[in-house]
Simulated scan of single mutants.
Amino acid sequence: MSQFTHLDKTGAAHMVDVGGKDVTERIARARASVYMQAETLRLLREGGHKKGDVIAVARVAGIQGAKKCSDLIPLCHPLMLTSVKLDFDFDEANSAVHIEGQCKVAGKTGVEMEALTAVSVAALTLYDMCKAVDRGMEIRNIGLVEKLGGKSGHWQRGETD
């Protein structure tokens, strides 16, 4: 069994030293879903929400979340992100909005946490802006989809993950 990288031999938390790692392009994709009432989804899809373009605000919030990841997650390294993208897919059949985020960096450590933070903050923003019409919304299935680059190479979520 491998050791947690953020714990030393005594179990004390520490920030991993990435000084000796090579700078490589690293990419991570993550996803999250927000389930809601059909009427709430219709308002989002048609842009009929009284607060304006909720998706645009959620996109900007997700990008900002990725940029602030090291301020939120105690042992994350601050990264100079080269790209953050968020896509929103309306799923009528399941009354949900699926969010996929991708983060890129040329650096010494990966961007998985930034991608996960981006989709989480975007989902929370959707909830916040729509809660007046639908308090029963649920945020589900937050997870890493794929990561590329670095010493560990390419990882992709399989059908059974």
Rank of each mutant, 00 (worst) to 15 (best):
L81R: 09
L148E: 14
M129A: 02
D89S: 14
E100F: 10
L116A: 06
V60D: 07
E92W: 05
G65L: 06
R31T: 13
L72P: 05
K108Q: 15
P78R: 10
Q37C: 11
H14A: 01
P78I: 06
E100K: 13
A38D: 13
T117C: 13
R59S: 11
D87F: 12
G136P: 03
L43S: 11
Y35D: 00
C103P: 04
V111N: 02
R31G: 15
E39F: 11
V18N: 09
R26K: 10
C76H: 07
S33M: 11
G143I: 02
T117Q: 12
V23N: 11
A58D: 09
A115Q: 06
L44K: 01
A132V: 13
A38R: 14
A96H: 04
V57I: 15
C103H: 02
A115T: 08
A66Q: 06
D128R: 08
V23F: 12
L81P: 06
L79T: 05
I55M: 14
I73G: 00
T117K: 01
E146P: 00
E25S: 12
D128A: 10
A28R: 05
G110L: 04
G136R: 13
P74K: 06
L44P: 00
Y127G: 09
E46M: 11
P74S: 07
S152T: 15
I55Q: 02
I99A: 03
F90R: 00
L116E: 04
L75N: 03
C69E: 10
I139E: 03
R135F: 00
T5P: 01
A32C: 12
S70D: 06
G62V: 10
L116S: 01
H77T: 03
V23L: 11
A115W: 02
Y127A: 05
L41N: 03
T5H: 03
I139F: 06
V23R: 11
A61M: 08
L86V: 12
K67Q: 15
